[in-house]
Amino acid sequence: MLNQLMPGLRLAALLTVLTGLIYPGVVTALCRAFFPGAANGSLITRDGAIIGSALLAQNFTRPEYFHPRPSAGNYDASASGGSNLGPTSQKLVDRIAAQRGQQATAGLIPADLLTTSASGLDPHISPASAQTQLARVASARGATPEAIAALVATFVEPRALGLLGEPRVNVLRLNLALDDRFPLRK
């Protein structure tokens, strides 16, 4: 039995070098060469400053912007996670009732706009959730809801291959386009 000890140590050391240093090093070099933007976090720059990642939600509370889904981690991109509240949780029901109260729209609100995501950083909302916010954004920007709706329509990403996932709108990209196309009067 004891003669199995040293091969075990040598294999563990070999795999540490091979799969723990060489493999990630080679992958990093290849990714940096072929996909530099993606490898570094799909960062978006405006006026020379990085304003966020296209893949991560950031908090929007002003009326002139579309708002993302609520975040259990307050949009902290260094502490991801969900609420982990179960379906029979009093806290969950209270929180959603409060969020429902903040919505100006009557009627049913899309589920994704009232629930926290799994990551706390979900960059997307459903097209229906964008629709719910049209009137508020339009009036804050002095634009017609139709004009805003036309812009939103260009930002709806379809299902991959027409089949996978769900149609969605990237909130940060949409808000950047809003600032561009319907700037606020100072």
Partner: peptide, 12 residues
């Protein structure tokens, strides 16, 4: 236009 269902803890 929307996924519906139990979206608490899920991604759009």
């Amino acid at each position: 236009d929307q996924p519906g269902g139990n979206m608490e803890g899920k991604e759009v």
